[in-house]
């Protein structure tokens, strides 16, 4: 680890001020990716602005069929929240499967989506649900948030305040986990709204993505045979020692069909 300055501001104004007073400062949410990469000397921020003391960024609430989760809410809180379990059980289940207990008690939803690791679980929920990212500067629609490999549309000094999820009729998250890291090799987030079906895939490519052609087909006929019938060309899938692109393409199909059949039984 290289030397760095450390701040723990109490509110957004202080945070932004501290952030902007250094050239190469970084926000610290749960630190589940940033700290290990700093320890490996692969990341060398001049200052860390720790967001864990900003109460405004934490908490879970429901209002008008919108589930709001503060950016600094840890995975364990999402997994155990009765509000989440009752309104959007797929999200609680997703959170309960991230990493291990240590990670779930430090890692945050905001940190996860701001980092946009291609194998992270949360980005699939953002895209697989109708959601909005509320930041310190603006509101970003889910579809405009992820920009590619570890990249988002956030400005460097912009903070995620909370995420608003429109609660679907039903939803499911299914992960095919890497047997070693337990990250997603393929993760499927499938949701049904009265006017739309969404299918988002994480882990398989350089960035989370939606399978639009399939969504259309499933909206008209929610059944797994649609997956075989639809031509949804997916290209540029990841190729690594744990799964090549062909196996990932195969798994996407298998996991989507599995997700559909589970939702059908519900």
């Amino acid at each position: 680890m290289y030397a760095f300055e450390y701040f723990a501001p109490k509110n957004l104004q202080e945070a932004t001020k501290a952030f902007n007073s250094f050239n190469d400062s970084k926000w610290l949410a749960g630190g589940m990716t940033l700290i290990p990469s700093m320890k490996l000397r692969m990341n060398a921020p001049s200052a860390l602005i720790d967001l864990s003391s900003i109460e405004q960024l934490k908490g879970i609430s429901i209002k008008n069929n919108i589930l709001s989760i503060g950016a600094m809410t840890i995975h364990a809180d999402v997994a155990n929240s009765l509000d989440v379990i009752n309104s959007l059980p797929a999200l609680a289940s997703l959170a309960s499967g991230i990493g291990d207990p240590q990670v779930r008690n430090r890692g945050t939803i905001g940190g996860s989506i701001a980092n946009n690791d291609p194998a992270a679980d949360y980005p699939s929920a953002i895209l697989g649900l109708k959601s909005k990212i509320i930041t310190s500067k603006k509101e970003i629609d889910a579809g405009n948030f992820f920009n590619g490999f570890f990249s988002t549309s956030l400005d460097t000094d912009e903070l995620i305040v909370k995420i608003n999820f429109q609660i679907p009729e039903s939803a499911i998250y299914l992960k095919f986990a890497n047997p070693v890291s337990r990250y997603a090799i393929v993760g499927i987030f499938l949701s049904k709204y009265h006017d739309e079906v969404r299918v988002a895939v994480t882990g398989a490519a350089s960035c989370v993505f939606r399978v639009n052609e399939l969504e259309e087909g499933l909206f008209h006929d929610f059944c797994s045979s649609v997956v075989d019938k639809t031509d949804y060309g997916i290209t540029n899938l990841n190729d690594d020692i744990h799964a090549n692109s062909e196996y990932r393409r195969y798994l996407i199909k298998v996991m989507i069909k599995k997700a559909i059949s589970i939702l059908q039984k519900k």
Partner: peptide, 10 residues
């Protein structure tokens, strides 16, 4: 080496 950590070496 592509399995230089417990993220890749099972």
């Amino acid at each position: 080496p592509l399995t230089g950590s417990l993220m890749d070496y099972g």
